[in-house]
Design a protein around this nucleic acid. Structure first.
Length: 221
DNA sequence: GCGTCTCCGGTCTTACGTCC
DNA sequence: GGACGTAAGACCGGAGACGC
C-alpha cells in the first residue's frame, strides 16, 4: 500500500510538472512569436526605407545629369562576358526566391513557421498537412517553396546544426553563413522544438538526472 | 581548399491494420 | 493477443554544387 501511495504521489507530481512545463512552454512560444513578428516588421520597414532612399538617390542623379540612367536589374544581365558579370549573376541568383538556395530570411521564416506549429507535430497523425500549412505560410510571406522542400530544408538545417555542435561549435560562432544557428540554438535550449538526439546539444545546460525513482531536475521533462 | 548547402537514396523506428 | 506487413516519419551519409 505504501508503494502504491508513493507511486500515486509521484504520478501526481509528474502530471503537475508536465502541466507546469506545458504552460511555460506555451508562454515562451507566444513571446518568441511576438518577438519574431516585431523583428520581421522592423526588417520590412528598413527594407522599404532603403528602397525609397535608393529611388530618391537615382532620381537625384538623373536630375543632376539631366538624362535617364539605366538601372541594371539582376534579371537583365545577359549570359556572361567576364568573371565580373558571372559574379553579378551568381549574386543576383542568390536573391531570387525561385533559386535552389535558401536566403537567410527565408530559412528564418521557415524556422518561425515550423516552431509556431510545433504543437501539431507533437500530435500523432500525418504530418503532410502540417507541412502543406507551412508551405502556404511561406507563400504568404512571399517565398515559393513546396511542403516537401520545407520539410527537407528543416531536416537539413537540423542535420547541419547537429554536425556543427558535434564539432564543438557554438551557435553564435557561425553567424557568418549559418545565421539560423542562433535561432535553432535558442529553440533547443528553450525546448520549443524537439528533434531527437539533437537535444544532446542542451546537455551542457540542462542536467537531467533520475536517481532512486525521483526526478531531481524538472528540466528533464 | 574548405565550409556550407541541396538533393537523393538508404536504413531505422513507430504506429496502425490485418490475419491467424 | 501475438506475429506480420505496410506506410509514414525521422535520421543519416554521400555526391556534387556553390561561395568565400
Amino acid at each position: 500500500m505504501r508503494v502504491m501511495e508513493k507511486q500515486e504521489q509521484m504520478h501526481k507530481q509528474l502530471i503537475e510538472m508536465i502541466e507546469k512545463n506545458e504552460k511555460e512552454r506555451i508562454g515562451k512560444e507566444e513571446a518568441w512569436k511576438r518577438q519574431e513578428m516585431e523583428r520581421w516588421k522592423r526588417d520590412e520597414e528598413l527594407r522599404a526605407q532603403e528602397a525609397a532612399r535608393s529611388m530618391d538617390l537615382i532620381s537625384l542623379i538623373q536630375k543632376v545629369l539631366g538624362n535617364e540612367i539605366e538601372v541594371t536589374k539582376p534579371s537583365m544581365i545577359s549570359s556572361g562576358e567576364g568573371d565580373g558579370r558571372k559574379a553579378l549573376i551568381r549574386k543576383a541568383s542568390t536573391c531570387n526566391h525561385n533559386n535552389r538556395r535558401w536566403p537567410d530570411a527565408e530559412a528564418q521564416a521557415l524556422i518561425m513557421l515550423r516552431t509556431s506549429l510545433e504543437h501539431k507535430f507533437r500530435e500523432v497523425g500525418s504530418k503532410c498537412s502540417i507541412w502543406d500549412e507551412i508551405s502556404v505560410g511561406m507563400h504568404n510571406l512571399g517565398y515559393n517553396r513546396t511542403a516537401r522542400k520545407c520539410k527537407e530544408k528543416w531536416e537539413n538545417m537540423n542535420k547541419y546544426f547537429k554536425r556543427a555542435m558535434e564539432k564543438g561549435k557554438k551557435p553564435h560562432d557561425n553567424g557568418k553563413t549559418c545565421s539560423y544557428f542562433n535561432e535553432l540554438g535558442s529553440l533547443y535550449r528553450n525546448g520549443l522544438v524537439n528533434s531527437g538526439n539533437i537535444l544532446n546539444y542542451t546537455n551542457n545546460e540542462i542536467v537531467a538526472t533520475i536517481s532512486g525513482g525521483e526526478i531531481l531536475d524538472n528540466n528533464y521533462l
